[in-house]
């Protein structure tokens, strides 16, 4: 398709044909009409992902497929590559049969490959492809787009933009703050990653009088999760002294332990947290936060998230 103009109408027509064909296969495959469960075309949003071309298509496909269970969507994947003017598009569907069900669920995908120079064209193609009346969410994982300053070009495509500031090449806090200032809805998976920790801390700390809280992290420099945690504690416990403390040696920058006054600690481990209150020791499970779980949570929120915005403002102030 390279070299030829890409027309959104044509892509939509191909999507339509894809469904018709799948419907036919389904009918031909089921020997008994009343038992052939049919095909369910489900859609709750348009999810537009920008990734660098090097990103493994299989693992990205798996992540997107697992999102479909909770957030059935029309997925548009834009693979951004090096080079000069290049643009191509193809259409396919991803289907699965939920366990114990007799009906397949299918989600449609449009894959567009483009160079950074073509981002303006990509926007013109993607916007008519979005499903009307439903939210449009941009997942920005392409360092190329960030480096080239292309964010502004793709922003009008979505109601919300999701980044992961703990990935290399992601936009920094300053840039994210700029998006909020311009009135955009943004989400950061580094923030989503600490939801369970925050929820546990809220349960533990809410009815206490707190003097000092220290967030200890692994390494010399605090990563975004540790910084979010510190800023959130500062904004929600205005009377407490909140501090960050690194382990000193080289490390990931991720939070390890939260110490509250002399008698309460929350130690973060893989998949769980150990809470000690004086003599009492209790374990709480903390989901590991695989990318798809985090995205699932983030896709559920397509409104301004005031708590996140307040915390980000605290960091960038």
């Amino acid at each position: 398709m390279s070299g030829q103009p890409i027309k959104p109408d044509k892509i939509l027509k191909e999507l339509g044909e894809l469904w018709t064909n799948m419907g036919k296969e389904e009918v031909a495959g089921g020997d008994d009409q009343s038992h052939g469960g049919g095909l369910l075309r489900a859609c709750a949003m348009t999810l537009i992902s920008f990734v660098d071309d090097e990103e493994d298509p299989v693992s990205l496909g798996e992540t997107l497929a697992s999102l479909m269970k909770e957030h059935p969507s029309r997925a548009v994947v834009v693979r951004v590559r090096e080079g000069e003017d290049f643009l191509s598009a193809r259409v396919f569907a991803q289907c699965w049969m939920p366990f114990g069900q007799r009906r397949q669920i299918c989600c449609e995908q449009v894959e567009i490959t483009a160079t950074v120079d073509c981002l303006a064209d990509v926007a013109a193609i993607v916007s008519p492809l979005a499903v009307p009346d439903l939210p449009r969410v941009i997942l920005l994982r392409s360092a190329r787009v960030v480096r080239s300053g292309g964010i502004r070009k793709i922003l009008p495509l979505g109601d919300k933009i999701i980044v992961d500031s703990s990935r290399t090449g992601a936009p920094g806090f300053g840039e994210l703050g700029g998006l909020l200032d311009a009135g955009h809805i943004a989400g950061d998976l580094a923030w989503t990653r600490i939801t369970e920790i925050r929820s546990l801390l809220a349960q533990l700390l809410e009815s206490r009088k707190i003097g000092t809280v220290t967030v200890e992290y692994d390494g010399k420099e605090a990563g975004p999760e540790a910084r979010y945690l510190e800023a959130w504690l500062e904004t929600s416990l205005p009377d407490a002294r909140v501090g960050l403390k690194g382990s000193g040696s080289a490390g990931s920058g991720k939070p390890l332990m939260i110490r509250v006054d002399g008698d309460l600690t929350v130690q973060l481990m893989s998949g769980c947290a150990e809470v000690r209150i004086g003599e009492l020791k209790q374990r709480a499970s903390l989901p590991l936060g695989a990318d798809e779980e985090l995205l699932n949570a983030e896709l559920s929120i397509v409104v301004h998230d005031r708590v996140f915005e307040r915390v980000l403002n605290q960091i960038t102030a």
Binding site: R198, S199, A202, Q203, L205, E206, L237, I301, V307
Partner: peptide, 11 residues
């Protein structure tokens, strides 16, 4: 400290 948009209800 609550975040109703994100936290699950706790007992």
């Amino acid at each position: 400290m609550q975040d109703p948009l994100r936290f699950h209800r706790k007992a």
